[in-house]
C-alpha cells in the first residue's frame, strides 16, 4: 500500500514535536550529568567546556537550543489547543512556534561564536 499523503503543516508540527521531545529525552540526562561534574569533578567539566568551544560543538548546541525552543513553543500551542477555546489559526501558530524557536536558537548561536 502506498504511504498515505501526510504532507500538511500540522502533521509536520507533530513530527517535529516528537523528534524534538525524543532528542531532549536523550540529551538532558547527559546535560545534567555534566552539570553534576561541577561539584564532583571540576577538572572533567573544564575539559568538556574546552571541547565545547569547537565550532562543530557550537553548531550542535544551536541544534539543541532549537529543539528545546521548538518543543516548548510547540507544546504550549498544543496545550492551548487542548485547554483554551478553539482557535482556527493552528497552522499559523505552529509556524510561529518554529519561527520563534529559530530566532532564539540563532541568537544563541550568534552570541556563542
Amino acid at each position: 500500500m502506498k504511504a498515505p499523503a501526510r504532507s500538511h503543516p500540522l502533521w509536520f508540527a507533530f513530527v517535529l514535536h516528537r523528534v524534538s521531545g525524543l532528542g531532549l529525552a536523550l540529551f538532558l540526562p547527559a546535560h545534567f550529568w555534566l552539570l553534576s561534574q561541577a561539584l564532583s569533578n571540576p577538572a572533567r567539566l573544564d575539559g568538556f567546556l574546552a571541547f565545547a568551544e569547537m565550532p562543530l560543538v557550537k553548531l550542535a548546541e544551536f541544534g539543541l537550543v532549537f529543539l528545546l525552543a521548538v518543543h516548548m513553543f510547540g507544546g504550549l500551542r498544543l496545550l492551548a489547543l487542548e485547554f483554551l477555546p478553539w482557535s482556527d489559526r493552528q497552522k499559523t501558530l505552529a509556524a510561529g512556534a518554529v519561527g520563534v524557536a529559530f530566532l532564539i536558537s540563532t541568537t544563541f548561536f550568534l552570541k556563542a561564536i
Binding site: P4, R6, H8, L10, W11, F14, L78, L81, E82, W86, Q90
Partner: peptide
C-alpha cells in the same frame, strides 16, 4: 496528537480535531 489529518482530508471540510480538543 492533533496531527490534523482528519481535518485536512474531510471531504465536507469538518474539523474533528477541533471536536476532539
Amino acid at each position: 496528537h492533533s496531527m490534523g489529518s482528519c481535518a485536512q482530508y474531510c471531504p465536507n471540510e469538518l474539523n474533528p480535531m477541533r471536536a476532539i480538543a
